[in-house]
Design a protein around this nucleic acid. Structure first.
Length: 517
RNA sequence: GCCCCCAUCGUCUAGUGGCCCAGGACACAGGAUUCUCAGUCCUGUUACAGGGGUUCGAAUCCCCUUGGGGGUACCA
């Protein structure tokens, strides 16, 4: 039997990082077993602009390389893959459950039920509906309707016994049927409850393994009850631990950004992103531009493989030392047996370290390709060979300082015109305005830079050394002023590499201007 | 309240009765290198939630407590 797994997002307009982890594990498990991964959309009639709200989710999954074999955009033998287009199927199943006596029409009013619940609560008893308004005969049904009651369909769950399940991650789990309510599966307005739709879709799509977040574990009995009632084969279940907040074991939510911002690593990641966004002229809102949403990473040019690698390790490990996995290696090694049971909290610092490591491994050519679009967007270079060559030079010089593609934006000094170069005032004050600094700088420019014939890093450095020695000057006395004068700030790439990239003309022009500051 | 699930360094984890006075990674701290920053290289601090059992022996098995999460909805 072919292994088939699925991911079933609701069209919410964004792809949540916890959802990605669930999708990833489903995808890895299917691929590891030579099976298929299906994407199904849990939308409802009420939702407007489903396509629009779905787009970021599909886009995000594709960006991460999590491709689906069936679903939106690719079709498949079990179409439609949208719940809102599958109501006929749900209705047929509800009718069947009623016909077979596993479900019934119920005419209780919400307030009547609530009163009974409160009563049970007061007596500290588990509430079990007494089926008082169950319409098990046509007469009763007519009577309830005559009373103006609205009907729902409820499951007729067993009053005793227990359900035993073997979860692929949790192991053996037992539930008492007596604890289960007669859950509603179809509302008074005719719409269907998630659990019903869910099992019908999984059955139709021939899903063999249901891999989902652990909050669904307690929901499983009511779903299994329906599956058994219909005589269908149960899928195998695997309930994943949830993804928790940074530095805590509470479930991660996109609504609690303020709280997460108190976490140093989290706020560091966000602030770095915000700075880059500003340089890109990107309009960002905290709603979508934060590390809980995958879009955040894509917009800054993170490497999707790095994110996938990090996420794979959030609740799964191969052994006690292997950390780096290509997608292919993940597929080859992924098993549910090695998924942990406890919640794993989202660690921005570790994610960032994966990104750094992955970026370091890229060739200058590849990094240039990744960075170029950002430099183009900033209006610094054209998207042509000249632009590419310029970016390549900066990328080579910056080497490991570029941790994500958008970091190229931190090297504006190499792209801006000489007269447009911004200066960091405190660096100017400290390095250029220092007693004698400007005079020394001028002497250096006149003695060494102006006459230089070969404008490359190594000869320039050599020339400076000779000059320093013959004048009895330490390198520290000149180089900081030179850096601020040519780049506008006191931090940056190697001084001589920087000069080489700038070129002789710019270097001299900038020094000249710096002498007037 | 009741039911279910979970619990090893700050974080991700290894560990399935002796190999563990607990290993790796990230983070953190100190040092080295360097023109700054980044990086790199050393070095270091830090954990079996608590209490009872079982056993010659427990992070590992059992029970209780505590803590976290979920369900108990005409939410998903």
């Amino acid at each position: 039997m072919t292994v088939r797994t699925r991911f079933a997002p609701s069209p919410t307009g964004y792809l949540h990082i916890g959802g990605v982890r669930t999708a990833l594990f489903n995808w890895l498990f299917a691929k590891h077993n030579g099976g298929q991964f299906i994407l199904r959309i849990d939308d409802t009639d009420q939702q407007r602009n489903v396509e629009e709200a779905l787009e970021p989710i599909l886009h995000g999954l594709k960006w991460l390389g999590i491709n689906w074999d069936e679903g939106p955009g690719v079709g498949g033998p079990h179409a439609p893959y949208y719940q809102s287009q599958r109501y006929d199927k749900y209705q047929a199943v509800v009718d069947e459950l009623i016909a077979k006596g596993f479900a019934y029409r119920d005419y209780a009013k919400p307030e009547e039920l609530q009163a009974q619940r409160d009563e049970a609560q007061k007596k500290k008893e588990t509430f079990v509906y007494n089926r008082q308004w169950m319409a098990d005969t046509p007469e009763k049904e007519a009577q309830f309707k005559a009373e103006g009651r609205q009907g729902v369909v409820r499951l007729k769950t067993p009053l005793e016994g227990k359900l035993e399940l073997d979860d692929l991650i949790r192991g053996h789990v037992e539930f008492d049927w007596a604890q289960e309510q007669d859950h509603v599966i179809q509302r008074a307005d005719g719409s269907f409850i998630y659990h019903l739709a869910n099992i019908v879709d999984d059955h139709d799509f021939e899903i063999t393994h249901v891999i989902r977040a652990e909050e669904h574990l307690s929901n499983t009995p009511r779903q299994v009850f329906m599956i058994d009632a219909l005589g269908w084969e149960r899928p195998q279940y695997a309930h994943l631990p949830f993804v928790a907040e940074p530095g805590s074991k509470t479930k991660l939510s996109k609504r609690k950004l303020d709280k997460y911002m108190k976490n140093k690593d989290f706020s560091g990641l966000v602030n770095h992103g915000l700075e880059l966004a500003k340089k890109m002229g990107l309009e960002v809102s905290a709603d979508t531009f934060n590390p809980v949403i995958t879009d955040f990473f894509e917009q800054q040019g993170y490497l999707p493989e790095a994110i996938v690698n990090y996420l794979a390790l959030l609740g799964w490990s191969l052994d006690d030392h292997t950390e780096d996995f290509t997608p292919e290696e993940l597929i080859a090694n992924f098993t549910l047996e090695r998924v942990v049971k406890g919640a794993a909290s989202f660690d921005c610092a570790k994610l960032l370290s994966f990104e750094h490591r992955y970026m370091d491994r890229q060739s200058v050519e590849r990094k240039t390709e990744l960075c170029l679009p950002f430099a183009v967007k900033a209006g610094w270079v054209a998207n042509d060979d000249a632009g590419k060559a310029k970016v390549a030079k900066v990328v080579a010089g910056a080497s490991e300082r570029i941790k994500m593609a958008a970091d190229i934006l931190n090297f504006e000094e190499f792209f801006l015109a000489d007269d447009a170069l911004p200066y960091v005032q405190k660096d100017v004050d400290k390095r250029l305005k220092k007693e004698g600094a400007q005079a020394l700088l001028k002497k250096f420019a006149d003695d060494v830079l102006a006459p230089a014939e070969v404008w490359e890093a190594a000869p320039l450095e050599e020339a400076m050394k000779v000059w320093l020695e013959s004048n009895g000057i330490g390198i520290g006395e000149i180089i900081h002023a030179l850096r601020v004068a040519t780049t506008g700030k006191s931090v940056g790439i190697g001084m001589f590499e920087a000069l080489e990239i700038l070129g002789k003309e710019s270097t001299l022009a900038r020094i000249e201007k710096a002498l007037t500051l």
